[in-house]
Design a protein around this nucleic acid. Structure first.
Lengths: 131, 131
DNA sequence: ATAAAATCAGTAATAGTTCTTAGTTTTAAA
DNA sequence: TTTAAAACTAAGAACTATTACTGATTTTAT
Protein backbone atom coordinates (compact mmCIF):
# COMPACT_ATOMS: atom_id res chain seq x y z
CA UNK A 1 0.00 0.00 0.00
CA UNK A 2 3.03 2.29 0.20
CA UNK A 3 2.15 5.37 -1.75
CA UNK A 4 4.30 6.05 -4.76
CA UNK A 5 4.74 9.30 -6.54
CA UNK A 6 2.77 9.86 -9.67
CA UNK A 7 2.80 12.75 -12.11
CA UNK A 8 -0.90 12.26 -12.73
CA UNK A 9 -1.75 12.59 -9.06
CA UNK A 10 0.41 15.70 -8.71
CA UNK A 11 -1.29 17.24 -11.70
CA UNK A 12 -4.75 16.54 -10.29
CA UNK A 13 -3.89 17.96 -6.89
CA UNK A 14 -2.22 21.02 -8.39
CA UNK A 15 -5.22 21.72 -10.58
CA UNK A 16 -7.62 21.37 -7.70
CA UNK A 17 -5.61 23.83 -5.63
CA UNK A 18 -6.09 26.50 -8.26
CA UNK A 19 -9.87 26.24 -8.06
CA UNK A 20 -12.30 27.59 -5.53
CA UNK A 21 -15.44 26.34 -7.30
CA UNK A 22 -15.44 22.69 -6.16
CA UNK A 23 -15.17 20.97 -9.55
CA UNK A 24 -16.49 17.51 -10.36
CA UNK A 25 -14.31 14.60 -11.51
CA UNK A 26 -15.30 15.30 -15.09
CA UNK A 27 -14.26 18.94 -14.89
CA UNK A 28 -10.95 17.90 -13.34
CA UNK A 29 -10.47 15.43 -16.18
CA UNK A 30 -11.18 17.96 -18.93
CA UNK A 31 -8.78 20.50 -17.45
CA UNK A 32 -5.97 18.15 -16.51
CA UNK A 33 -6.02 16.75 -20.04
CA UNK A 34 -4.73 20.06 -21.28
CA UNK A 35 -1.44 19.32 -19.49
CA UNK A 36 -1.49 15.55 -20.09
CA UNK A 37 -3.74 14.54 -22.99
CA UNK A 38 -3.20 10.83 -22.31
CA UNK A 39 -4.55 10.83 -18.78
CA UNK A 40 -7.61 8.66 -18.39
CA UNK A 41 -10.85 9.40 -16.59
CA UNK A 42 -10.35 6.31 -14.44
CA UNK A 43 -7.04 7.69 -13.24
CA UNK A 44 -8.71 10.95 -12.29
CA UNK A 45 -11.40 9.12 -10.33
CA UNK A 46 -8.91 6.79 -8.65
CA UNK A 47 -6.65 9.61 -7.56
CA UNK A 48 -9.43 11.86 -6.38
CA UNK A 49 -10.69 8.98 -4.25
CA UNK A 50 -7.18 8.25 -2.99
CA UNK A 51 -6.47 11.90 -2.13
CA UNK A 52 -9.81 12.14 -0.35
CA UNK A 53 -9.11 8.93 1.59
CA UNK A 54 -5.77 10.21 2.88
CA UNK A 55 -7.33 13.58 3.70
CA UNK A 56 -5.47 15.78 1.23
CA UNK A 57 -8.68 16.88 -0.42
CA UNK A 58 -12.36 16.77 0.51
CA UNK A 59 -15.14 14.98 -1.33
CA UNK A 60 -18.41 16.91 -1.23
CA UNK A 61 -21.76 15.23 -1.72
CA UNK A 62 -24.30 17.94 -2.26
CA UNK A 63 -27.35 15.99 -3.35
CA UNK A 64 -26.98 16.71 -7.06
CA UNK A 65 -25.83 13.18 -7.86
CA UNK A 66 -22.27 14.24 -8.67
CA UNK A 67 -19.29 14.32 -6.36
CA UNK A 68 -17.49 17.63 -6.01
CA UNK A 69 -13.90 18.01 -4.81
CA UNK A 70 -12.26 20.69 -2.73
CA UNK A 71 -8.56 21.23 -2.03
CA UNK A 72 -9.52 23.24 1.05
CA UNK A 73 -9.84 20.63 3.78
CA UNK A 74 -10.35 23.10 6.61
CA UNK A 75 -13.80 22.85 8.18
CA UNK A 76 -16.19 25.16 6.40
CA UNK A 77 -19.70 25.13 4.95
CA UNK A 78 -21.03 25.29 1.42
CA UNK A 79 -23.89 26.89 -0.42
CA UNK A 80 -25.41 25.29 -3.53
CA UNK A 81 -27.36 27.41 -6.00
CA UNK A 82 -30.47 25.50 -7.05
CA UNK A 83 -30.61 27.52 -10.30
CA UNK A 84 -27.10 27.35 -11.74
CA UNK A 85 -25.62 24.59 -9.59
CA UNK A 86 -22.65 26.64 -8.45
CA UNK A 87 -21.05 25.74 -5.13
CA UNK A 88 -19.75 28.57 -2.95
CA UNK A 89 -17.85 28.67 0.35
CA UNK A 90 -19.72 30.34 3.19
CA UNK A 91 -18.07 32.56 5.76
CA UNK A 92 -19.67 31.49 8.98
CA UNK A 93 -18.75 30.27 12.41
CA UNK A 94 -18.48 26.62 13.22
CA UNK A 95 -21.81 25.05 14.14
CA UNK A 96 -20.59 21.63 15.23
CA UNK A 97 -22.30 22.13 18.58
CA UNK A 98 -25.34 20.74 16.76
CA UNK A 99 -23.67 17.33 17.09
CA UNK A 100 -24.08 17.51 20.86
CA UNK A 101 -27.72 18.53 20.40
CA UNK A 102 -28.29 15.61 18.05
CA UNK A 103 -26.65 13.16 20.44
CA UNK A 104 -28.64 14.19 23.50
CA UNK A 105 -31.50 11.73 22.92
CA UNK A 106 -29.64 9.21 20.79
CA UNK A 107 -28.29 5.88 21.85
CA UNK A 108 -25.54 5.42 19.25
CA UNK A 109 -22.34 7.37 18.68
CA UNK A 110 -22.38 10.46 16.46
CA UNK A 111 -19.05 11.09 14.72
CA UNK A 112 -19.94 14.13 12.69
CA UNK A 113 -22.43 15.95 10.54
CA UNK A 114 -22.96 17.00 6.96
CA UNK A 115 -24.52 20.39 6.40
CA UNK A 116 -24.94 22.51 3.33
CA UNK A 117 -27.26 25.34 2.37
CA UNK A 118 -29.21 25.96 -0.82
CA UNK A 119 -31.05 28.81 -2.54
CA UNK A 120 -30.20 31.44 -5.14
CA UNK A 121 -26.67 32.69 -5.55
CA UNK A 122 -25.99 36.40 -5.96
CA UNK A 123 -26.07 36.26 -9.77
CA UNK A 124 -29.21 34.14 -10.05
CA UNK A 125 -30.95 36.35 -7.49
CA UNK A 126 -30.31 39.38 -9.72
CA UNK A 127 -31.62 37.57 -12.78
CA UNK A 128 -34.82 36.64 -10.94
CA UNK A 129 -35.46 40.23 -9.88
CA UNK A 130 -34.96 41.59 -13.39
CA UNK A 131 -37.44 39.19 -15.01
CA UNK B 1 -50.86 18.04 -15.58
CA UNK B 2 -54.03 17.38 -13.63
CA UNK B 3 -53.25 14.54 -11.28
CA UNK B 4 -55.26 11.39 -11.81
CA UNK B 5 -55.76 8.60 -9.35
CA UNK B 6 -53.64 5.51 -9.68
CA UNK B 7 -53.72 2.27 -7.75
CA UNK B 8 -49.96 1.98 -8.09
CA UNK B 9 -49.37 5.38 -6.53
CA UNK B 10 -51.73 4.62 -3.66
CA UNK B 11 -49.94 1.37 -3.02
CA UNK B 12 -46.55 3.08 -2.95
CA UNK B 13 -47.71 5.81 -0.58
CA UNK B 14 -49.47 3.31 1.70
CA UNK B 15 -46.38 1.14 1.89
CA UNK B 16 -44.15 4.08 2.68
CA UNK B 17 -46.45 5.15 5.51
CA UNK B 18 -45.96 1.81 7.22
CA UNK B 19 -42.19 2.25 7.35
CA UNK B 20 -40.00 4.31 9.62
CA UNK B 21 -36.70 3.18 8.11
CA UNK B 22 -36.54 5.44 5.04
CA UNK B 23 -36.49 2.78 2.31
CA UNK B 24 -34.89 3.18 -1.11
CA UNK B 25 -36.79 2.95 -4.41
CA UNK B 26 -35.62 -0.62 -4.80
CA UNK B 27 -36.92 -1.64 -1.37
CA UNK B 28 -40.25 0.02 -2.13
CA UNK B 29 -40.38 -1.89 -5.41
CA UNK B 30 -39.65 -5.27 -3.85
CA UNK B 31 -42.30 -4.81 -1.18
CA UNK B 32 -45.01 -3.26 -3.31
CA UNK B 33 -44.65 -6.13 -5.77
CA UNK B 34 -46.07 -8.46 -3.14
CA UNK B 35 -49.40 -6.63 -3.54
CA UNK B 36 -49.09 -5.98 -7.27
CA UNK B 37 -46.60 -8.31 -8.98
CA UNK B 38 -46.98 -6.48 -12.28
CA UNK B 39 -45.82 -3.09 -11.05
CA UNK B 40 -42.65 -1.91 -12.73
CA UNK B 41 -39.59 -0.31 -11.21
CA UNK B 42 -40.04 2.70 -13.47
CA UNK B 43 -43.51 3.25 -12.04
CA UNK B 44 -42.09 3.17 -8.53
CA UNK B 45 -39.44 5.73 -9.43
CA UNK B 46 -41.88 7.95 -11.29
CA UNK B 47 -44.39 7.98 -8.46
CA UNK B 48 -41.83 8.48 -5.73
CA UNK B 49 -40.55 11.48 -7.67
CA UNK B 50 -44.08 12.76 -8.23
CA UNK B 51 -45.06 12.35 -4.57
CA UNK B 52 -41.87 14.11 -3.50
CA UNK B 53 -42.49 16.95 -5.97
CA UNK B 54 -45.98 17.62 -4.61
CA UNK B 55 -44.70 17.37 -1.05
CA UNK B 56 -46.54 14.24 0.09
CA UNK B 57 -43.29 12.45 0.86
CA UNK B 58 -39.68 13.53 1.34
CA UNK B 59 -36.67 12.48 -0.71
CA UNK B 60 -33.55 12.09 1.40
CA UNK B 61 -30.07 12.33 -0.08
CA UNK B 62 -27.67 11.04 2.49
CA UNK B 63 -24.45 10.79 0.56
CA UNK B 64 -24.60 7.04 0.02
CA UNK B 65 -25.48 7.37 -3.64
CA UNK B 66 -29.04 6.09 -3.18
CA UNK B 67 -32.17 8.13 -2.62
CA UNK B 68 -34.20 7.31 0.48
CA UNK B 69 -37.87 8.17 0.93
CA UNK B 70 -39.81 9.20 4.00
CA UNK B 71 -43.57 9.52 4.45
CA UNK B 72 -42.94 11.81 7.41
CA UNK B 73 -42.64 15.26 5.85
CA UNK B 74 -42.47 17.14 9.14
CA UNK B 75 -39.11 18.85 9.69
CA UNK B 76 -36.76 16.51 11.49
CA UNK B 77 -33.18 15.30 11.27
CA UNK B 78 -31.61 11.99 10.35
CA UNK B 79 -28.72 9.84 11.49
CA UNK B 80 -26.92 7.51 9.08
CA UNK B 81 -24.93 4.58 10.42
CA UNK B 82 -21.65 4.34 8.53
CA UNK B 83 -21.40 0.63 9.39
CA UNK B 84 -24.79 -0.84 8.52
CA UNK B 85 -26.28 2.02 6.50
CA UNK B 86 -29.43 2.30 8.59
CA UNK B 87 -31.18 5.66 8.69
CA UNK B 88 -32.80 6.73 11.94
CA UNK B 89 -34.90 9.73 12.97
CA UNK B 90 -33.32 11.94 15.59
CA UNK B 91 -35.23 13.55 18.42
CA UNK B 92 -33.80 17.01 18.57
CA UNK B 93 -34.89 20.61 18.48
CA UNK B 94 -35.02 22.55 15.27
CA UNK B 95 -31.69 24.08 14.31
CA UNK B 96 -32.80 26.17 11.37
CA UNK B 97 -31.36 29.25 13.03
CA UNK B 98 -28.15 28.14 11.33
CA UNK B 99 -29.67 29.46 8.10
CA UNK B 100 -29.55 32.98 9.51
CA UNK B 101 -25.95 32.40 10.58
CA UNK B 102 -25.07 31.17 7.10
CA UNK B 103 -26.76 34.15 5.44
CA UNK B 104 -25.04 36.80 7.54
CA UNK B 105 -22.05 37.21 5.23
CA UNK B 106 -23.64 35.91 2.03
CA UNK B 107 -24.89 37.92 -0.88
CA UNK B 108 -27.43 35.47 -2.32
CA UNK B 109 -30.66 34.13 -0.89
CA UNK B 110 -30.61 31.03 1.33
CA UNK B 111 -33.81 29.02 1.14
CA UNK B 112 -32.92 26.14 3.42
CA UNK B 113 -30.37 23.68 4.60
CA UNK B 114 -29.63 19.98 4.47
CA UNK B 115 -28.21 18.42 7.61
CA UNK B 116 -27.69 14.85 8.64
CA UNK B 117 -25.47 13.14 11.18
CA UNK B 118 -23.35 10.03 10.89
CA UNK B 119 -21.54 7.56 13.14
CA UNK B 120 -22.38 4.20 14.73
CA UNK B 121 -25.94 3.25 15.53
CA UNK B 122 -26.79 1.62 18.83
CA UNK B 123 -26.45 -1.93 17.49
CA UNK B 124 -23.18 -1.37 15.64
CA UNK B 125 -21.75 0.42 18.66
CA UNK B 126 -22.40 -2.70 20.77
CA UNK B 127 -20.79 -4.95 18.18
CA UNK B 128 -17.67 -2.76 18.13
CA UNK B 129 -17.31 -2.90 21.90
CA UNK B 130 -17.65 -6.69 22.03
CA UNK B 131 -14.95 -7.32 19.40
C1' DA C 1 20.69 -2.17 -12.48
C1' DT C 2 16.76 -4.67 -11.04
C1' DA C 3 12.58 -6.41 -9.49
C1' DA C 4 8.44 -5.96 -6.58
C1' DA C 5 4.80 -3.01 -5.99
C1' DA C 6 2.19 0.78 -7.31
C1' DT C 7 0.39 3.03 -11.02
C1' DC C 8 -1.18 3.76 -15.60
C1' DA C 9 -4.42 3.98 -20.08
C1' DG C 10 -8.03 1.97 -22.05
C1' DT C 11 -12.07 -0.16 -21.70
C1' DA C 12 -15.79 -3.09 -19.80
C1' DA C 13 -18.95 -3.37 -16.19
C1' DT C 14 -22.07 -1.76 -12.65
C1' DA C 15 -25.66 0.89 -10.05
C1' DG C 16 -29.09 4.02 -9.80
C1' DT C 17 -32.17 6.45 -12.25
C1' DT C 18 -34.65 8.40 -16.25
C1' DC C 19 -36.61 8.02 -20.83
C1' DT C 20 -39.28 5.91 -24.63
C1' DT C 21 -43.00 3.43 -26.54
C1' DA C 22 -47.19 1.40 -27.28
C1' DG C 23 -51.04 0.14 -24.83
C1' DT C 24 -54.39 0.92 -20.55
C1' DT C 25 -57.01 3.71 -16.87
C1' DT C 26 -59.07 7.57 -15.18
C1' DT C 27 -62.15 11.33 -15.34
C1' DA C 28 -64.73 15.24 -16.95
C1' DA C 29 -68.09 16.28 -20.02
C1' DA C 30 -71.30 15.15 -23.71
C1' DT D 1 -73.55 5.94 -19.88
C1' DT D 2 -70.63 6.44 -23.79
C1' DT D 3 -66.49 8.83 -25.17
C1' DA D 4 -62.25 10.82 -25.82
C1' DA D 5 -58.38 13.47 -24.00
C1' DA D 6 -55.05 13.26 -20.67
C1' DA D 7 -52.64 10.84 -17.32
C1' DC D 8 -51.13 6.70 -16.46
C1' DT D 9 -48.97 1.96 -17.05
C1' DA D 10 -45.30 -2.14 -17.96
C1' DA D 11 -41.36 -3.31 -20.16
C1' DG D 12 -37.18 -2.46 -21.37
C1' DA D 13 -33.67 0.63 -23.60
C1' DA D 14 -30.74 4.37 -22.52
C1' DC D 15 -28.12 7.42 -19.74
C1' DT D 16 -24.83 9.17 -16.08
C1' DA D 17 -21.59 8.74 -12.66
C1' DT D 18 -18.52 5.74 -10.95
C1' DT D 19 -15.75 1.50 -10.21
C1' DA D 20 -13.36 -2.72 -11.72
C1' DC D 21 -10.40 -5.21 -14.80
C1' DT D 22 -6.54 -5.75 -17.98
C1' DG D 23 -1.89 -6.03 -19.40
C1' DA D 24 1.68 -2.50 -19.96
C1' DT D 25 4.52 1.17 -17.60
C1' DT D 26 6.63 3.76 -13.78
C1' DT D 27 8.46 4.27 -9.30
C1' DT D 28 11.51 3.23 -5.67
C1' DA D 29 13.97 0.39 -2.30
C1' DT D 30 17.63 -2.58 -2.55
Amino acid sequence: MALKHSKQRDLIKEFLMTRKDHPTADVVYMNVRQQNPNISLGTVYRNLTLLADIGEIARLRLGDGVDHFDADTSPHYHFVCTHCGSVIDLEMDDISEIVAQAGANFDGHIEGHVTYFYGSCSDCKKKELSS
